[in-house]
């Protein structure tokens, strides 16, 4: 199962609830304002780092770059994908749940 999160963790609890209710082995994609959850040095870094032991976490690189960041700003273990990679994630998982 793929979870998508498009909200900044500072604005909404979408990421927090997603990680709380995601099963081990589920994939999580951060995009739009959700990319702020993938960035090093925020107060959410420990939460996201811990989640990496249960879930694969991806971040959409074009949304990172749009917001003045790049791969170097991303928490270790979080993988970057482009839109083609986003499509692959959807295809590779049986269902997709958007945490709006």
């Amino acid at each position: 199962m793929l979870h998508t999160v498009n909200k900044s963790p500072f604005e909404k609890n979408s990421l927090e609830t997603c990680l709380r209710l995601a099963s081990a082995g589920n994939a999580v994609l951060l995009f739009e304002d959700g990319v702020y959850g993938a960035v090093k040095g925020t107060r959410f870094e420990p939460t996201v780092s811990n989640a990496l032991s249960n879930n694969k976490i991806y971040v959409l690189v074009s949304d990172l770059e749009a917001r003045g960041m790049n791969k170097d700003n991303v928490i270790d273990g979080v993988e970057t994908v482009d839109y083609a990679g986003f499509v692959d994630l959807v295809a590779d998982n049986k269902s997709v749940q958007a945490w709006l």
């Binding site: 998508t4 498009n6 959807v90 295809a91 269902s95 997709v96 958007a98 709006l100």
Partner: peptide, 8 residues
């Protein structure tokens, strides 16, 4: 086979 939701 997959439904993808984009919203707010």
């Amino acid at each position: 086979e997959r439904l993808v939701v984009f919203g707010d």
